[in-house]
Amino acid sequence: MAHSFHVKSSQLHLKWSKALTPVLTVPSGAELSFDLRDGGNNQIRPDNAATALADFDFALTDPAMGPVFVEDAAPGDVLKVEFLELTPSDYGWTAIFPGFGLLADEFPEPQLKVWDLTDAGLTPSSSPGGMRRAVFRPGIEVPVEPFLGVVGVAPATDEELPTIPPYAASGGNMDCRYLSRVGSTLYLPVNVAGALFSCGDGHAAQGDGEVCGTAIETPMLARLRLTVEKKAVRDAKGWALNCPHYVTPPLTREQLEAKLAPADKGEYAALGIHEDIREASRMALRGLLDWLVAEKDLSRPEAYMLASVSSSLKMAEVVDMPNYAIACSIPLNVFTE
């Protein structure tokens, strides 16, 4: 069943609340398009790059477009969200904000990188079906893999909740590059009548961890399908959904070949080991930054931003207490020279 509904970029909210008035009411199974602002609420653009960080208002960040009331959705049900199409804008940005990010105490100065995401600015894939690449600087290119950072439903609480953190019971600003890319399916617990679904925060690329606090942030045109799965179906199987779950699509043969030989050159990683998982992550990230500065001739802020859009934090070992082992890795195929 296909329907035609559209949510405008002006139809946004900055708090999650079950008291919000829906901007649309749609039947289960509806396809919707969303004109999405980026995670900075479109405050940073190529035309104002020189002054954008100085004028930036954090109170306006992580806007969610919506909410959408889905008919027949009731508390205890599940909202199935299918990501059908994601189209980034012709520009993106990555920034270091003072006081924000995994190494905030080590990067007190603001820094901004504006990316060219036009057809002319992107490097074509070297193989059929492969991903185009955004140029960080000559010799360093990052694959463009669009996804949405903010995807969620209204919470059950009477309180208004900020949109910056994610929530187990309702999703939100999860910044997980797998759950909302094209072909993925996300399952969210329904907490209130109609679910009150919203989304936003387009990303052209991001590493696992988004370590400097930003990805390649970009406005996005998104097409999604929303379907209600009734509580009785899961009750019959003997389990309930208490947090977001997702399924990713299989890679096509062309995508698999592009990720493997000859493009894949392996990865470089630093391993942080500490009894505090956050400190282990910080240690691993510092190690990777040290290598990028020494071996790839990057400034430390450049290395931090490149890590945020292309490196990945991984829980390598979490059972041999008291210490955790966290890897921070970067794929070597981002280096084309």
Rank of each mutant, 00 (worst) to 15 (best):
L60P: 06
V68W: 06
P143M: 02
L60R: 15
P22R: 06
M305Y: 09
E141R: 12
R286S: 11
F58W: 10
T123Y: 04
N323D: 13
L12T: 15
A2P: 05
T61Q: 13
S4R: 07
A280M: 02
T218Q: 00
G152F: 04
K265R: 15
G121F: 05
G39I: 01
Y167L: 04
M321T: 15
F5L: 01
L122F: 12
T218M: 05
V150I: 12
P189K: 01
F34P: 00
P22T: 00
V68T: 09
N191F: 04
A193C: 05
D320V: 15
K259G: 05
T185K: 12
L289V: 03
L306F: 09
A222Q: 00
F197M: 12
R132Y: 13
D297C: 06
W115Y: 13
F147S: 08
I330W: 11
P146R: 04
R133F: 06
S33Y: 03
L224E: 00
V68D: 12
V190I: 07
A168Q: 14
P301T: 07
L103K: 11
K265G: 00
P98Q: 03
A49F: 01
A50F: 09
L313V: 05
S180R: 06
F147Q: 02
G66V: 03
C176T: 14
V233L: 13
Q111L: 06
A54I: 03
I216R: 03
P124G: 12
N173I: 08
R133Y: 06
A134M: 02
M131D: 12
N191T: 01
V228Y: 00
R45N: 07
A54N: 06
V23M: 03
R278V: 15
I44N: 01
A215I: 02
S184Q: 02
S89R: 05
P165L: 03
T252L: 10
A73V: 08
K15G: 04
A64R: 02
E267V: 07
E210L: 15
V228I: 09
R37Y: 07
L148W: 03
V26C: 10
E210F: 05
P27R: 11
E145D: 11
T25L: 04
T25K: 14
A261Q: 08
E229K: 09
A325W: 06
D72K: 01
L161S: 04
A232N: 10
R133Q: 15
R133K: 15
E160K: 11
Y178A: 12
G39M: 08
M1I: 11
N42D: 15
T123H: 10
D90N: 13
G194Q: 07
D320H: 13
A195P: 02
S308F: 09
D264V: 02
S308P: 05
Q255C: 02
T214W: 04
K265N: 12
V153I: 11
R234D: 09
R225V: 00
L313W: 09
G209P: 10
A240D: 08
E160T: 14
V211F: 05
G130V: 11
G92S: 02
P138C: 07
M1Q: 11
D90Q: 14
V309E: 10
E109T: 14
R300F: 01
M1F: 09
G130Q: 08
D175C: 13
L12S: 14
D105S: 15
P250C: 04
P110F: 00
F69W: 15
V211G: 08
